[in-house]
Each structure stands twice: as structure tokens, then as C-alpha cells.
Design a protein around this nucleic acid. Structure first.
Length: 106
DNA sequence: AGAGTGACTCATA
DNA sequence: CTATGAGCCACTC
């Protein structure tokens, strides 16, 4: 059915995010490619904004290796703490070492 | 239907 | 490196 393809797409986004292994990160664009909509990166971000609770959205970063500014409150990046707990390394710029920790799915 | 916005990305300068 | 413009999709008014 095509009537709720949108919900389907969003569901896929949630599934993928929930599927990100511990200690790994991925990007919006990568998720978009996984759901066969490479140009959906923007909508993916929107979907994550409306994402249900319990989703490890802190493992989703942009191409630079940084997470959305909304995750930062009072000058503290909670995502960094969470990811560091999982073993993800950061550069001195505060960016994730994408080369080592970017997840391309299975 | 049209315009504005946003957790994005890419190409140029 | 930063700054801009453009393309993309979904949502809201």
C-alpha cells in the first residue's frame, strides 16, 4: 500500500536508529540511503525530532561528526558523554572520529 | 496551492 | 577554514 508510505519510511528510520550498535554512530544521509531515499536526509532529521522515546538518537550525527545543537544545553554536549561512555572517540574539535565509528549498517 | 522552516548534504568561491 | 547558494523531503500555516 502506498497510502502510508510516509509512516513506513519513518518506521524504517526508527528501526535503523534503534539498530545502531553500541559504540557506533551514523549520519542522517546514511540513514536516508538505507531506506532507499538518499535525499531524505532532511526529513530523517525531522523524523528523529519526532522520534519516540527510548531511541538512541544520540548515535545519529551529521556529516561533520557533530550532533544537532538541540542536544547541547548550557554548553554541555550530553551526546558526547553518552558516546564516550560507549567508547566513541572525539577529535579536539569535539567531533566524532567518523572514519572509525561511522556505521554503514550490516 | 504557495511560502516558510528545519536534528541535512553537496558544490563553489 | 568559513560563507553562500542550491537541492532534497516533510511539516505547518
Amino acid at each position: 500500500m502506498v497510502q502510508n508510505w510516509k509512516e513506513n519510511t519513518f518506521e524504517k528510520v526508527y528501526e535503523i536508529v534503534a539498530r545502531i550498535p553500541r559504540g557506533r554512530v551514523t549520519t542522517y544521509g546514511q540513514i536516508a540511503r538505507m531506506i532507499e531515499n538518499p535525499r531524505l536526509s532532511r526529513a530523517v532529521g525531522y523524523a528523529l525530532n519526532k522520534s519516540p522515546q527510548g531511541l538512541p538518537c544520540h548515535r545519529v550525527v551529521n556529516r561533520e561528526g557533530r550532533l544537532a545543537a538541540v542536544f547541547e544545553h548550557d554548553g554541555i554536549h550530553e551526546q558526547r558523554i553518552l558516546l564516550e561512555e560507549e567508547g566513541v572517540e572525539f577529535t579536539s574539535d569535539g567531533r566524532v572520529v567518523m572514519k572509525e565509528y561511522m556505521w554503514f549498517g550490516e
